[in-house]
Design a protein around this nucleic acid. Structure first.
Length: 846
RNA sequence: GGGCGAAUGGCGGAACUGGUAGACGCGUUGGACUCAAAAUCCAAUAGUAGCAAUACUGUGAGAGUUCGAUUCUCUCUUUGCCCACCA
């Protein structure tokens, strides 16, 4: 017998699958479809371990479903637009397209080495004209449906690079590249009206039974529905404004009203734009750190106006009006009614500016003399000091009652508010999908005629300019249509737009007239299982859910509204981090372990070992998958990446673990050859029940664990199976039923280690067309079973009996049992709990 | 500040619907093979006591429900993740 040569075997099968188009998927209405999708990768250069984990999980599922008889769609593509390409191209004097395409080539080869069951004929890339053409059409469609609009909005502006920065590019308030202090700047940008679907997106979550609750909760919070009331406050003062609207969830505390706070961007601020103190105040506001935490914890500051606001329920009561840094312009109406007694933030503000703190809610167990002192009381209770509202239960009853009263008096009305904001999709970047809009000489926008789509990105581009490179590309920017001159929109679309509909494109990747073909969509959609990182729990998934609704809005193309039927979020791949004495990060292959200590390979210095963290280039704690695949083989890598932790949790990369997976494949090969010998044995006469039972149980376990994503347990089942066979074959020969059972076992292993299984099956003259073995439920219950005997709840013995023995007969055996005898003799039995075939608990007097 | 999880040997983790806690792997220890090492194979491995049979303790802490709790309920501790001045 020769050693298992993973290189030859894996190459052979990968070639076989490719040449035979083993994973090609076509509509077949006689079969049930299964659409398995993993989040497509960004072509950053090389695949990383996170990809290996993600795509292995998806591949196991796809292969399993295929064996189960489903018509499986398992595609792969590239999320190919984005900033890294632009940066890398500028740094290396390349073209973003060339950089991206070469990365795709590399990564595609690497992914193929994993032996994934992917239909590569459906490969798509979002940076191809063929893809973004349809995206531009969608954009124009949404524009027609008024789901796209243009408005002014604040952006992070880098004054040195003259460019817009994404939030993650702002580090400590400074631009990541230039180091210049980032400014807020108003720019006119394109928006998708996602907030129109707030309620619908919220309701849709209810239908997603197999999404992790964690993700659903995050989306729910992100949408942020709150029930309350809009109230109009009359203003008095020396300005030509006489009223302002506020949104509140607690109108019932209106008698605790002691100030009104406006956002510094509120329209009333226009009257103060030349006021020196106000300008100073605004500057002060922008100083408090930029991190969200700093803003949340930061000091509350205000600017007092000469205005007075009138309490609508108590017209003789007038309170001061402030501008305050904690009031957000884009939530509610950019104005808050302050009730310091029952809101901590208002309380802090009132303390600082010496405003009244009125108590209008008391806890149920306190008297009406209760007074808010050290901190606001925001719990439930009873309304007090509130005239006609006194005695109401707060907040449940009192809020509804108050709204009724306000509505009757025409002072306000019930309102539901959402935190979800419209999606700004403009990016001042070159490497993205061009927005198909042109501006005429008056600056008015209009759609690029559909016949002129796609608006192609210019191939030649100078990236060494300030701001958006497209802005400087005059020969591209200026167009003449029917003799009229226009200027193109130079903003490109957020890459999240590309990934919001790619799952539709996979269904009909070559459809030329439209983004998808309805027949194909009807057959393949929705995605039955979507798999990816939890970092996309909010934006990507919400945008995709929005996009399905938006495309369907007023069209009704689809029978479905939710794109992803099930969602699985896998954990990250982690590794220890290493630092030398100068606090420089070191990569694992620069480090050598001797005993419990670690040393730098090149100079022998001792290394500090840090905590295990998600693999990242910046911390250098990365393991290159290609290197590992070349060394140990794809099956070993697949085995290891699944073995150590449940797929939804983080997994710790371990060289030891990797080696042991490699060895396991070798051991399986040795076992295979032993089994083959015994299968070819001439004298096959014994039909063994134990083997039959074991195989049946194993199939049951693996099947159930596959269904529940307990992939780590499947690896344990595989080891168990190996151990069983090794011991079993030592004792048993001339087996008639060995071949049949072994083939079933190999089939069960094949989703995890497909190359190895295919090789073994072929070695025994079985072809690839096997189906998933069924297990027999009846056979799961063995004749002879162990029953636990407890005495007063403590395990005292284990008795091997025939299934279904009566309580009486078992008790007899128990009394004879030497372990139980000493506890039971001369003791009175008070009670017996008998769970058939499982356990007997005998209660006695001690 | 708000929300959602998690806590089991030296480590990663198993445990169906409340019914034998610690499957499987790593590590460690001992042994076989070898001139030796690697590889491989065999055995042991929660803790305490014991030669052993066995007994007691044990799933973050404390209570509760139950014949019986890793699993259900309550309180607390620690920890992770997400969101964050959302009116």
């Amino acid at each position: 017998m020769s050693r298992y040569n993973f290189k030859l075997t894996e190459d052979k099968w990968q070639k076989f699958w490719e040449e035979n188009k083993s994973f090609k998927s076509e509509i077949n209405r006689d079969k049930k479809k299964y659409y398995c999708l993993e989040m497509f990768p960004y072509p950053s250069g090389k695949i990383h371990m996170g990809h290996v984990r993600n795509y292995t999980i998806g591949d196991v599922l796809s292969r399993y479903k295929k064996l189960k008889g489903f018509n499986v769609l398992h595609p792969m593509g590239w999320d190919a637009f984005g900033m890294p390409a632009e940066n890398a191209a500028r740094d290396n004097k390349l073209n973003p397209e060339d950089w991206t395409k070469s990365n795709i080539d590399t990564m595609k080869k690497q992914l193929k080495k994993l032996g994934l069951s992917i239909d590569w004929d459906r490969e798509i890339s979002t940076c191809s004209e063929d893809y973004y053409k349809h995206q531009q059409m969608f954009f124009l469609e949404l524009l027609e449906k008024k789901l796209v609009y243009r408005k002014e909005n604040y952006v992070n502006w880098d004054p040195v690079d003259e460019t817009v920065l994404a939030n993650e590019q702002v580090i400590d308030g400074k631009g990541w590249r230039s180091g210049a202090t980032v400014e807020r700047k108003k720019l006119s940008q394109w928006f998708f009206n996602i907030s129109k679907f707030s309620q619908d997106l919220l309701d849709g979550l209810e239908k997603l039974k197999t999404w992790p609750n964690k993700v659903k909760t995050m989306q729910k919070n992100w949408i942020g529905k709150s029930f309350g009331c809009e109230i109009e406050f009359k203003l008095e003062g020396d300005l030509p404004v006489d009223k302002v609207k506020c949104f509140t969830t607690r109108p019932d505390t209106l008698f605790g009203f002691s100030f009104l706070a406006l956002s510094a961007d509120h329209e009333i601020s226009n009257y103060y734009k030349d006021n020196k103190d106000f300008i100073k105040f605004k500057e002060e506001c922008s100083k408090t750190g930029t991190t969200e935490e700093a803003i949340a914890v930061g000091e509350k500051i205000g600017f007092k106006t000469n205005l007075k606001a009138i309490n609508p329920l108590k017209p003789d009561e007038k309170v001061p009006v402030f501008f305050a840094n904690f009031v957000l312009m884009d939530y509610g109406f950019g104005a808050v009614f302050g009730c310091p007694g029952h809101d901590q933030r208002d309380f802090d503000f009132a303390k600082k500016y010496n405003l009244d703190i009125k108590t209008v809610v008391r806890p149920a167990d306190k008297s009406d003399n209760f007074k808010v002192e050290r901190e606001a009381y925001s719990g439930s209770g009873i309304l007090i000091n509130s005239e006609f509202l006194n005695g109401l239960n707060a907040p449940d009853k009192s809020v509804i009652e108050t709204i009724k009263i306000l509505e009757k008096k025409k002072l306000g009305k019930k309102q539901i508010n959402y935190r979800l904001k419209d999606w700004g999709v403009s990016r001042q970047r070159y490497w993205g999908c061009p927005i198909p809009i042109i501006y005429d000489e008056n600056g008015d926008h209009q759609a690029v005629p559909k016949s002129m789509l796609p608006v192609k990105l210019p191939k030649q581009i100078n990236l060494d300019v300030k701001g958006n490179p497209l802005d400087s590309k005059d020969d591209w920017k200026e167009v003449t249509i029917d003799g009229k001159k226009y200027t193109r929109e130079t903003d490109t679309l957020d890459t999240f737009v590309c990934s919001s509909w790619y799952y539709l494109r996979f269904c009909s990747p070559t459809e030329n007239n439209y983004g998808f073909n309805k027949d194909e969509i009807d057959y393949w959609m929705p995605v039955d299982q979507y798999i990816g990182g939890v970092e996309h729990a909010i934006l990507h998934l919400l945008y995709s859910r929005f996009f399905m609704r938006a495309i369907d809005y007023e069209n009704s193309n689809f029978n479905i509204t939710e794109p992803f039927e099930s969602l699985f979020t896998q954990g990250m791949v982690c590794h220890e981090t290493y630092k030398d004495i100068n606090n420089n990060w070191l990569s694992p292959d620069e480090v050598e372990k001797k005993g419990d200590r670690y040393f730098n390979k090149s100079n022998g210095e001792e290394i500090k070992v840090g905590p295990s963290e998600s693999m990242s280039k910046s911390k250098k704690n990365v393991i290159d998958p290609e290197f590992i695949i070349n060394n140990y083989g794809a099956d070993s890598v697949r085995l290891f990446i699944l073995s150590d932790s449940p797929p939804e949790k983080d997994v710790q990369w371990s060289e030891q673990g990797m080696i042991s997976s490699y060895k396991f494949i070798q051991k399986l090969w040795t076992l295979h050859n032993e089994i083959k010998l015994k299968i070819n044995d001439e004298k096959k006469e014994i039909f063994d029940e134990e083997l039959q039972e074991f195989t049946n149980l194993t199939i049951a376990k693996i099947t159930n664990n596959l269904e529940k994503f307990n992939y780590n347990v499947i690896i344990a089942n595989m080891y168990e199976t190996y151990n069983f066979f090794v011991n079993y074959l030592k004792k048993n020969n001339h087996l008639k039923n060995l071949e049949e059972n072994y083939i079933k076992i190999l089939t069960c292993f094949s989703p995890i280690i497909p190359h190895f299984s295919s090789e073994c099956l072929e070695d025994l003259n079985y072809n690839d067309n096997l189906s998933w073995p069924k297990y027999n439920n009846a056979l799961l219950d063995k004749e002879k079973i162990n029953v636990v005997i407890q005495i007063n709840g403590r395990k005292r013995s284990l008795i091997n009996i025939n299934r279904g023995i009566s309580e009486k007969d078992l008790l007899k055996l128990v009394k004879e049992d030497k372990n139980c005898e000493k506890y039971l003799s001369k003791k009175e039995i008070k009670k017996i709990v008998y769970v058939e075939n499982r356990l007997m608990n005998i209660l006695i007097n001690e």
